[in-house]
């Protein structure tokens, strides 16, 4: 159970970064942390102590496998996270070109 709590703690650290950090790159890192924590949580949900990897061969006839579905999902989620992070960084760099700053509190032309 504690390990789940740590996952949530990691999630919250990521959120903290998003809410309080002004630097665009640090915000992106915050997202990376969140994505990491959620993926970790997912993998842990499927985990069973002492179980084998879910590969059915003639040698291992036991049914004590870890749950394979979260692993498949985590793989997909990582790809999506990669895509998001890449787009975010690309746009952060473009913003730097235009505004000459990474400080989000100075990037506020759109308001009202």
């Amino acid at each position: 159970m504690t390990i789940f709590v740590f996952c949530i703690a990691l999630f919250l650290i990521g959120l903290y970064a998003i809410v309080t950090k002004r630097n665009l790159i640090k915000i992106v890192i915050g997202f990376a942390l969140i994505e990491y924590s959620v993926n970790l949580l997912f993998a842990l949900i499927g985990f069973r102590r002492g179980a084998l990897a879910p590969i059915i061969t003639k040698v291992h006839t036991t049914h004590n496998f870890v749950d394979p579905i979260p692993q498949a999902l985590v793989l997909t989620a990582i790809v999506i996270a990669l895509g998001t992070t890449a787009v975010m960084l690309a746009i952060a760099l473009r913003i730097y070109e235009r505004y000459k700053t990474f400080d989000i509190s100075k990037i506020k032309r759109l308001k009202g």
């Binding site: 665009l24 998001t84 746009i91 952060a92 473009r94 913003i95 990037i107 032309r109 759109l110």
Partner: peptide, 14 residues
């Protein structure tokens, strides 16, 4: 890729 568009996109993305 104008300044406002990038800004909007980043905030939207967050």
């Amino acid at each position: 890729v104008d300044a406002e568009e990038l800004e909007a996109s980043f905030k939207y993305m967050v």
